[in-house]
């Protein structure tokens, strides 16, 4: 039995006269012990899915089970066995660190000591501030406390909605290290993020855009399904180089990618042809080399297909 099984889930919202199709028939499975990522920008439908799976929102149609329990019929059972960390900080700001943790443990009829091993590595980092009010913590500490509170009843499935949004690169790395440790302890984790580079840290991911899943798989599978060659190109005048590349009929697409531009080549065109083309357009000195696609390249290619 899957830890999470989602079948054709649909959710719409009314906004004045307009209907927003937040989730448009989404299906996926998460195996036990898996670290599963839902990757997509704001407005993809990530939060709506998390709220339906944690029984805080009813689907319009379709359904899902979490640890075998139905999200509509068995909502009480699900609430006992999942942990949920929403995107917005939602602990009690006027309770201390310690009080928040005890409060959540008590609600779930357990104690902090009973499952302390699970949160120990994270809690020791905020323990020096245990008498501080949660509202007075820094962003990084709030995040760690929220994670402890979501874990204290030893949930079967942990839902983390954009835990790393707006967080700097160092704290993001630390947070993902914590997730990997939790996964080792057998907890199934569903995490959402708008950062494409975090996909590679998940066992499997679903790439989402505008209410739909574009593809699901291991990061490796998704990268292997990218069916074009990519050349990375760099020159002195990057802006001019991109304009020149975009005018070339040998390419599918060209876009900036950090230090380089990524150029998606049409079939049968290679580095040699590009060197000739760039030499003829005043970029003889361009640095050109083949690269492996990243999840971000895949995401962009899938987005383009949706436009067609």
């Amino acid at each position: 039995m899957s830890a999470v099984a989602v079948h054709n889930l649909v959710k719409q919202y009314k906004s004045g006269k307009a209907i927003i199709e937040a989730v448009q028939g989404v299906s996926f499975d998460v195996a036990r012990g898996e670290l599963f990522g839902i990757i997509g920008p704001d407005g993809a439908g990530k939060t709506s899915i998390f709220r339906m799976l944690t029984t805080l929102l009813l689907p319009d149609s379709g359904g899902a089970t979490v640890d075998g329990s139905d999200i509509v019929k068995d909502y009480q059972a699900i609430r006992q066995k999942v942990g949920y960390m929403p995107g917005r900080f939602s602990l009690y700001q006027d309770l201390t660190v310690e009080e928040n943790l005890h409060f959540f443990a008590t609600i779930f009829k357990t104690s902090v000591t009973e499952n302390y091993t699970l949160i120990k590595d994270i809690y020791v980092q905020i323990e020096p501030f245990k008498t501080r009010k949660a509202g007075k913590l820094s962003g990084g500490m709030k995040q760690k406390l929220a994670l402890c509170c979501a874990l204290i009843h030893k949930p079967v499935v942990l839902f983390l909605d954009e835990p790393t949004t707006g967080v700097d690169a160092v704290s993001r790395k630390e947070f993902w290290d914590m997730l990997r440790n939790l996964r080792q302890q057998g907890i199934t984790i569903l995490v959402s993020t708008p950062y494409m580079d975090e996909a590679s840290l998940c066992d499997r991911v679903a790439l989402m855009q505008k209410g739909k899943i574009m593809t699901t798989g291991t990061p490796q599978q998704i990268i292997q399904s990218f069916n074009h060659n990519i050349l990375a190109v760099k020159a002195q005048n990057m802006y001019g180089l991109l304009q020149v590349l975009k005018q070339w009929n040998a390419i599918e697409d060209a876009y900036s990618f950090g230090e380089y531009h990524h150029v998606i080549m049409k079939e049968r065109y290679d580095k040699k042809v590009m060197r000739q083309y760039l030499a003829s357009t005043g970029y003889a000195d361009a640095d050109i080399h083949a690269v492996t696609p990243t999840i971000e390249d895949c995401f962009m290619q899938l987005m383009q297909h949706k436009h067609d």
Binding site: G40, P41, D42, T165, G166, P194, M196, Q209, Y255, S256, E296, F299, M300, M303, Q304
Partner: peptide, 16 residues
Amino acid sequence: DEPTGGVDPVTRREFW
């Protein structure tokens, strides 16, 4: 101030 947070990769590049 973090103008592209949460924006999709294609729009992020259009923004730049």
